[in-house]
Write a protein that binds this DNA or RNA. Sequence first.
DNA 1: TGGGGTTAT
DNA 2: ATAACCC
Length: 482
Amino acid sequence: EQLGVEPAEEAGRYEEEDAAQAMERVEAGEADCSPGAPGPEEPGGLTWLVPEGSSSSRVIVHVDLDCFYAQVEMISNPELKGKPLGVQQKYLVVTCNYEARKLGVKKLMNVRDAKEKCPQLVLVNGEDLTRYREMSYKVTELLEEFSPVVERLGFDENFVDLTEMVEKRLQQLQSDELSALTGSGHVYNNQYINLHDIVHIRLLVGSQIAAEMREAMYNQLGLTGCAGVASNKLLAKLVSGIFKPNQQTVLLPESSQVLIQSLSHVKEMPGIGYKTAKRLEALGISSVLDLQTFSPKILEKELGISVAQRIQKLSFGEDNSPVTPSGPPQSFSEEDSFKKCSSEVEAKNKIEELLASLLNRVCQDGRKPHTIRLIIRRYSSENHCSRESRQCPIPSHVIQKLGTGNCDVMTPMVDILMKLFRNMVNVKMPFHLTLLSVCLCNLKALNTAKKGTIDYYLTPSLSTTSRSGKRSFKMKDSHMED
DNA sequence: TGGGGTTAT
DNA sequence: ATAACCC
């Protein structure tokens, strides 16, 4: 899968390969992409080519795992490998492996339709996300080893800013190695590579790193995926999907217009969602070119200056948003959907289940949530996706009990949740819910406050109760609650 | 459409 | 608290 050796029309062939074969191809590729650059004279490295970071352009990689849930299931149970496999949540096949896709199964397909299309389809239940979530974080952690700036997008996608790493590698590069420099994977649009162009060079080095990332994912975690390398997140994401599965593509700047113009509708642009696409449609905007050429003033008036300016820049392939390190999660939530819940007792039982799982997760995380939220969805024929929520601070005495083994923290928290429930739902009237969700958020690190510091005396658990067992002075409640 | 996530207002 | 976006 060395640059330049793969004509686009051959890409389909790789879908027949298994992951191991494809990986072997990656390693076995022959150098091919050098147009025969002149050997730079300076023996020390390439710093002469890069005048003090004059190139402000970035190198971003988007890493996208192939049918992630299905891959995790096949690792859990290798007997599933080679069979058409779907992952089921309720009555939906939320994702499936490539065997199943070949037989006509699509993502988010109804189980009935899928079974009709593909009677041999093997289904596994994927409503419990625990193993997917754990594997997802292993991937992110692996990528963080390459460079700490990793942004998660869902469970199966990550952005990594490779700019600094590429700079370092270029400084290490001996000048005579430049003429032999080769990227890895496909070049979008089969574009000609100019090794005199520092931007090309940097992106090629980015593609080498991307290949190393995919290799590490396969060797260490057994996972395959795609990667896209480009100068910003939008383009990296768009280009990562060009050759699938288990392949990678680099976008050189001269082809960015070809890439974005290849989208058949503005809705395909990441950042333009369902609502915005509908509003654009009402303005007669459906293609990327429509959006590029639309009056900015009118667009600002219709969508607000923020959205208008952002999406119009996106339509030109411009995206200056940084890769924001995700770090640990901001919230933990568990939800369950169902046909009907119409009694308080029923709701309480479901809420207890959700909360019990959450408490395990939050306990493992180590940080403590300071806010709890209950979310419901009411039955209604039209507005299906609308949800309502109520949240409140978790009392500090409950926070302190979190993670302390046999202490019953369920009872006070269920009491809080049921108050939130009755605040949203008039239980004296008939009701019909189709979803319940509990979210623990506003996570704060454990007390690292040291004795003798201000923090120590302002930290209720340390300065009042835990030292002597009795309060040495009284804290104001307002300091102890959120 | 499921079972998650994020940020902006 | 909701609305938009992402998977």
